[in-house]
Design a protein around this nucleic acid. Structure first.
Lengths: 380, 380
DNA sequence: CCATCTTCCTTCGAAATCGAAGACAAAGCG
DNA sequence: CGCTTTGTCTTCGATTTCGAAGGAAGATGG
């Protein structure tokens, strides 16, 4: 069965292994170009990595005018990563190889209101189940990561003042999980993980805003190819004041927050008041697809409001792309009205090359992002 | 007289020289800690740098319990940097040593509306005059940099769609200056330079928003200690829509831009309409200090509007500090109302450790920033 | 089919870097 | 005053990395 052991690679080796793992390099020559090391040094280190069993040589790649490269791949026995994305009412679990490719992904219902101990113990048990069922024998677990639907201090791995996670405030999530797995443990906000996951699907973009439109509104920010955390709470856009006719109080104590009008929760509330039941964000999407005019109107309005907020941020951050994910992202009117608002009001200089698109990573983006960050943590 | 020659230091030497130049290290031991090199390697390279005449050993520092370090300093003959900050009606010039310390700073009137060739030739001539008058004999010029009051593509050194620089669109500024000086030439937006300059005065802050409140409103963004440019136009906040009762059209074609209400130009316009003459932003500050109620009210309103825009950006970027500079930054009601708006409306998590302060670098911040960026360019 | 080009990878001596050990120089303390 | 502690800097052999040269293996093109 799968053991748990720390991965030990020192110095240049880890850089090379990382480049192969994330798919940036497939041959010694590419490794030399990307790592900046001399070709001879690369050969030496690669030989060692093959000796350790972490890399394998597998056939040859396609020639580009000269000798064909000997293709390098991560050994399938190099290790596994256990990742999770915790939501309010369900969690997604994944078992990935070190390259971030999923062996299995599963969604299970849960309830974070039961508190951190119970939820995290359940999470650990679920990881063990997945490992038993799907982990190839003899392949060790290398690290554990989870996304949390609230603010996280990544240094300590604690939850910080979450708005919808009763009992979780200041709970040391990383420490608690670390008691189950004596391995690197990574805890991060869910929108941030989603941003990291999307960033891998948008390699041409250095600066990215990733919007998570679900029952809440979250945003992850990639600056210079790396996750931007600020002092820990960067990416929050849900409590921005929007321009509306009416006036609604938000749970944060301020009037007219974006979240009070444009979040999935707000839309579900508004629909219910109109006598149209909607219990989950996907119900809202279904109503829109069924052509229920009230739903479409509400979603369009939400898109306009989100778009107006993004306007400010696009001028300011000047990103390469805005990526929209989350369960509401399949509602086409939402995307359309966000696009309209941004393109109408932003500076031409900022929108000239701006792409506004839906997620490439799909519902698994956060899990893939968790794998990506975790790989960095594992490769000391 | 001062020659012009390229600085040639290779590999590890340039890192060490940079650490001494920016004042992060004063001894071999500190260099070893900060550079990550082994102490022995540092000794070797430092010996070489002293041999080249770029570093000098000067007395000894204060002991912290052990042997006193031998203090390293940049040689006064190591070189000079010529920097400028071009404004609409005046330009500031500076001659700095490689550590960024000014030998002389001068302000001269000019008019950028005369077009790029004339202005830049005048700038080059001014540099030569300063060098003749203040440059120590035998100390070579190492690089040239200037700030531009409009968008700049830093890669090509061209001006891009400036709003208030007739005749400058797409002009290759760096290339033109390079014809006068066969040296590294750096061209950058003025607010960005100011941000870099301030960042050196706020070493404890990794993420910084630097507001330039003058006749226009600009903003430079420091993320992870480095200037964030986005696709080239990052930091623009002047064309954000603000919430007001009246409605004013901005030159950009959209209604109610921040710039139309809160820029120095807008304030001067509004005061003139009230029969109170104000020809420069500093006039506005003077009126406020004289207790002219109309001026104070207008400035307070401007601060509130700016603050409301910053609200969104603070939640999103979660910076360590907001630094306010530019000629309006001496108007205390402006700072006060910006502070009030931000602290009132932002998330507690984002403002808990947020500092909102006026410039530490003063009117020379942009020149110091130019020196800082230029040093990086000069140290290949 | 054979010469030539391109790309990939390895070999091997030179150069840079490291790290352990020790010399050096002060502060703190009895 | 001598001892210990702390911190700085150098010496020197071991390790790592580099870079030039060349071999390997295929593409290209007459």
């Amino acid at each position: 069965m799968s053991g748990k052991e720390r991965l030990l690679v020192r110095g240049a080796q880890s850089d090379l292994l990382r480049l192969v793992a994330i798919g940036h390099a497939e041959s010694r020559a590419q490794l030399a170009r990307l790592s900046g090391l001399a070709a001879s040094s690369v050969s030496l280190r690669v030989e060692e990595l093959i000796g350790t069993g972490l890399l394998v040589e597998e056939g040859s790649g396609t020639s580009s005018g000269g000798r064909r490269p000997r293709r390098l791949r991560l050994s399938p026995t190099a290790g596994l990563l256990a990742v999770a994305d915790l939501g309010a009412h369900h969690a997604r679990f994944g078992l990935l190889d070190l390259s971030g490719t999923p062996l299995v992904i599963e969604e299970r219902p849960c309830d974070i209101a039961r508190g951190p101990e119970e939820t995290l113990d359940w999470m650990a048990a679920s990881f063990e189940e997945l490992l038993l069922a799907y982990g190839p024998p003899g392949v060790p677990l290398r690290g554990v990561a989870t996304g949390i639907p609230g603010p996280v201090d990544p240094a300590s791995g604690r939850v910080v003042s979450p708005s919808r996670m009763p009992g979780w405030n200041n709970f040391p999530v990383a420490e608690h999980l670390g008691a189950h797995f004596d391995l690197p443990v990574l805890v991060e906000n869910d929108a941030n993980l989603m941003a990291v996951g999307e960033a891998r699907s948008w390699p041409e973009c250095d600066n990215l805003m990733v919007l998570k439109a679900g029952s809440g509104i979250g945003c992850g920010v990639i600056v210079g190819g790396r996750l931007h955390r600020g002092r820990g709470s960067a990416g929050d856009i849900s409590h921005v004041r929007v321009r509306t006719d009416s006036s609604t109080m938000c749970s944060c104590g301020h009037p007219d927050c974006l979240e009070a009008y444009a979040s999935g929760a707000a839309l579900m509330g508004a629909l219910s008041e109109l006598g149209i039941p909607a219990r989950r964000p996907s119900d809202v999407v279904a109503l829109v697809e069924d052509g229920v005019p009230e739903a479409t109107a509400l979603v369009r309005n939400a898109g306009r409001l989100i778009g107006e907020v993004l306007t400010v941020l696009v001028n300011f951050l000047n990103p390469d792309a805005i990526v929209i994910g989350g369960s509401l992202s399949t509602a086409e009117p939402l995307i359309a009205s966000i696009r309209a608002a941004v393109y109408e009001r932003c500076l031409p200089l900022a929108t000239r090359d701006l792409e506004i698109a839906v997620t490439r990573g799909g519902p698994d983006a956060a899990l893939l992002g968790a794998g990506s960050l975790l790989l960095d943590a594992v490769l000391s």
